[in-house]
Design a protein around this nucleic acid. Structure first.
Length: 576
DNA sequence: GCCGTTTTCGGCCCGACTGTTTTCAGTCG
């Protein structure tokens, strides 16, 4: 039984218990456990073999026993009994917008509706409007919701969502009376995919801002509109919502809108323990009802006795406790990154010359640029063959002469890890290069044993310095290779090979979860844009965001080292 | 069902919006 299968069952149990009307805290417990497994970054079965299930946060005696049963036997008696009592298909009804557990239960008990087609039929036949608490509008909403489900786009990649949100924010900022606008939500936390766009504005008079938002030409329909918030569906299918708060509240409002929900809950509980009630409007002292407002998040955290917690860490994974204990990491920032070590030029599938790439890197303040064109064996990119490397070395040297000391160029390669586990260049050729990134682009669907053996062979090759986009996943639709990550991370940690966080928003590989695990395993990381043209260097912040979500400090990221230290590290690894 | 700087039992966030209601329940974030 795989992690996603366990997640699905835990979530399903939570859904069914909610419909059944069980204690909401029990429901939350199952959902939290599911969330933990989703973000575990490890094979749950392996954790179970080590006897570590009950060490997972949110796993108590009851859930640990149930998950153990699932992993051991492939089934769960508790779940089997549950779905005899409540049709499992009812859970899918919760996905319909505006359908919650109470309505699902009502429909099931009163009309015998058990699945989506049944719901659609009942709504179309006009049988919903006579149920208690429902009417014609509710019925129409259900029908519209089912239709929206069919067409509604899934979570959007961060790289697609960010420009849309920033465009909306820029338009709102230009309105008279608007003091500030910030994209918030999962976007501000830099999750790799984003559901809805959450945008927060500060203005004394909310009405004109709300009106401007819902009147945008790219709005397909208005989903809701009130005096302080509105939500819309854009013509692209993406959803966006806007809150407008007075500037004096902006700190607490931004905190609220940024989330995550779990972070907010943890913070509100922490506030309550101090006799303070926290909402988007600020803090309220329970003793005397006095309200305290905050124009900035920093001031609000300070009032709770906490340092500022970076949005990327606000996932409800213990960051509030860490902040309280003074154990927050000094997170890497884009300005810490001085080297870019995986980049392409027109020597393979890049769109620019070495010199053009160097000028672009200099313009962004970088001090070291490695040109790592694809090895010729990856035919489609027309990269240099082994015999071409000396000629490319001359080209890099010539460019270096032109550039002087404005930037340090390295001649490297993104050498292909072939399907049989060998590398595309001989050891002798690799030994002549300044830096070597080894990556897989082919045969990613091999068996776990095969693909892991290939990766381990590359990591153990003494001429390899970095593993590029280690898992091969693409956002949103290509799953990662089926690697034994425990083995890969252990090998990288012992050999000192750095694992890449590829900053291309379609890759973000390693992911935040795996990068965190790599750090725990003792690995070095390398954030690279994998630039194929000059403006790709602007992807850097995406990679930095992944590292920040992983809790990475600059010390563990080789791109943050001074050029001298980086070159010394390469020399230690046997570089010329 | 989980969890602990107040608790091993009794807690477990807070408010906006909608639709159906004459004061609230359900849903959402």
């Amino acid at each position: 039984m795989t992690n996603p299968e366990v997640v699905a069952i835990l979530e399903r149990i939570g859904d069914l218990l909610e419909i059944k009307g069980e204690s909401r805290f029990k429901v939350i417990a199952y959902r939290k456990a599911a969330e933990q497994v989703r973000d575990l970054g490890r094979d749950l079965a392996a954790v179970h073999r080590e006897g570590g299930l009950d060490a997972i946060p949110g796993f108590g005696a009851a859930i640990a026993a149930k998950v153990a049963e699932l992993l051991d036997t492939g089934s769960l008696g508790y779940y089997t009994k549950l779905i005899e009592e409540i049709p499992a298909s009812l859970a899918e009804l919760l996905r319909v917008p505006d359908m919650g557990p109470k309505k699902v239960k009502l429909l099931w008990e009163q009309l015998g509706v058990v699945d989506l087609p049944g719901l659609a039929a009942a709504a179309a036949a006009g049988r919903l409007r006579d149920l208690p608490g429902m009417g014609e509008k509710s019925e129409a909403r259900v029908l519209a919701g089912i239709q929206a489900m069919a067409t509604r786009s899934d979570r959007a990649p961060l790289g697609d969502a960010l420009p849309v949100a920033e465009a909306i924010a820029a338009d709102l900022r230009a309105l008279p009376g608007v003091v500030a606008v910030e994209p918030a939500g999962s976007l501000r936390r830099r999750k790799e995919t984003v559901g809805d766009l959450d945008i927060l504005a500060a203005a004394v008079d909310a009405a004109p801002v709300i009106q401007a938002f819902v009147s945008r030409p790219d709005v397909g329909r208005i989903l809701g509109q009130g005096p302080v918030k509105a939500s819309v569906e854009l013509v692209t299918g993406m959803r966006a919502q806007l809150w407008v708060h007075p500037p004096a509240h902006f700190g607490s409002a931004l905190l609220y809108a940024t989330g995550s929900k779990d972070h907010n809950v943890a913070l509100r509980e922490f506030a309550l323990a101090q006799g303070l009630s926290l909402s988007e409007h600020g803090l309220k002292r329970l003793a005397d009802g006095e309200e305290i407002r905050f124009a900035t998040e920093t001031a609000l955290y300070a009032a709770l006795g906490l340092p500022f917690i970076a949005p990327e860490l606000r996932e409800g994974r213990g960051e509030v406790a860490a902040a309280r204990a003074g154990r927050l990491p000094r997170l890497v920032e884009s300005s810490d990154v001085v080297s870019t070590l995986h980049n392409h030029s027109d020597w393979s599938d890049g769109k620019a010359t070495i010199l053009e790439m160097a000028e672009a890197a200099i313009a962004r303040g970088l001090k070291v640029l490695a040109i790592t064109d694809h090895s010729g064996g990856l035919g489609i990119t027309q990269g240099p063959k082994e015999k071409d490397l000396p000629r490319q070395r001359e080209a890099v040297r010539a460019a270096q002469v032109r550039l002087g000391d404005r930037i340090r160029l390295l001649q490297g390669s993104e050498v292909e890890i072939r399907a049989d586990g060998s590398l595309d260049f001989s050891d002798a050729a690799l030994a002549q290069l300044d830096i070597v990134v080894a990556s897989m682009h082919v045969s990613l669907r091999q068996s776990r044993d095969q693909v892991t053996a290939r990766m381990l062979a590359a990591i153990h090759n003494p001429h390899v310095d970095i593993i590029g986009h280690p898992t091969g996943r693409m956002i949103p639709d290509r799953a990662r290779a089926d690697l034994d990550l425990d083995a890969v991370l252990a090998a990288a940690a012992t050999t000192g090979v750095a694992l890449e966080i590829n900053a291309n928003p379609r890759r973000l590989d390693l992911s935040d979860v795996l990068a965190r695990r790599a750090l725990e395993a003792g690995c070095l990381l390398s954030i690279n844009t994998d630039a194929h043209q000059p403006d790709h260097f602007d992807f850097l912040h995406f990679g930095v965001a992944v590292a920040r979500r992983a809790g990475a400090e600059p010390e563990r990221i080789i791109n943050c080292w001074t050029p001298e230290r980086l070159l010394a590290w390469l020399a230690d690894r046997g570089r010329p």
